[in-house]
Design a protein around this nucleic acid. Sequence first.
DNA 1: ATAGTACCAGTATCTGTTACCAGTTTAATA
DNA 2: TATTAAACTGGTAACAGATACTGGTACTAT
Lengths: 131, 131
Amino acid sequence: MAVANQRMTRQKKVILEILKNTKSHPTADWVYAEARKVLPEISLGTVYRNLNTLCQAGEILELNYGSSFSRFDGNPQNHYHFVCTSCGAVMDLDLPVMVELEQNLQEATGLRVTHHRMEFYGQCCTCLDKS
Amino acid sequence: MAVANQRMTRQKKVILEILKNTKSHPTADWVYAEARKVLPEISLGTVYRNLNTLCQAGEILELNYGSSFSRFDGNPQNHYHFVCTSCGAVMDLDLPVMVELEQNLQEATGLRVTHHRMEFYGQCCTCLDKS
DNA sequence: ATAGTACCAGTATCTGTTACCAGTTTAATA
DNA sequence: TATTAAACTGGTAACAGATACTGGTACTAT
């Protein structure tokens, strides 16, 4: 299942642990800053490279909706997100994932449907309090 | 309703018509190429500027999931999309939009939910035939 | 040991998009 | 219709996030 010929380097391990240990949905830059606390010599290119290979290996998710840069999620299982359009925060939602929609769509259209995504937009509680 | 102090220039009108008259979900570059057929002097910056103002005015939609660049949709009403992960094509889906999810989520969480998006991913019929 | 290759840090480059500026066009008013 | 203020324009430079390249290092299997 996993992509062959992949090594678990110190750098990759650190990046993966950072993502698994945060509930935020960090940007590559944030991961880079965190990784440098552990491995001060790590380069930004390495962070991007490993984020991509981890995505391809299905160990993390890339979230790239609505802004010019990606965020990453250490939880590779499909789940829905809420995006605050005021502060940009991204949070997980505790909603059941409607996998049956994929099957229905596939049968109705003849497309091959592999996955789907859903995000909700609005203002988070913090931003609502401020206004 | 409309954003104040907005002028309907020739450029904006052409861009809007291009988007209304296509079922594809074009990129800014494609819109630029089409617009130049009508207005050879139009600049890429103007295309981007007007795409943004049209989005803010609610006349078009920006679709920016899953790739490094945005696509635009001349139909501003919320609807769901299918994205082919092989060829990048984007197509509209004829599924009912589940607005009730927004209300449910808002009541369950205290968030203010303004809208939501859903995309399905997989292979389109053309790409399935090829493989 | 040796070869082969996945990986690294550092840096240059790429790409989609935005900002700037001086001149033009639009639309509201007289 | 003429005037006018400000929104808009084309052209270009700058920007940011991401990727490609380079020369060198560290695994891994023979």
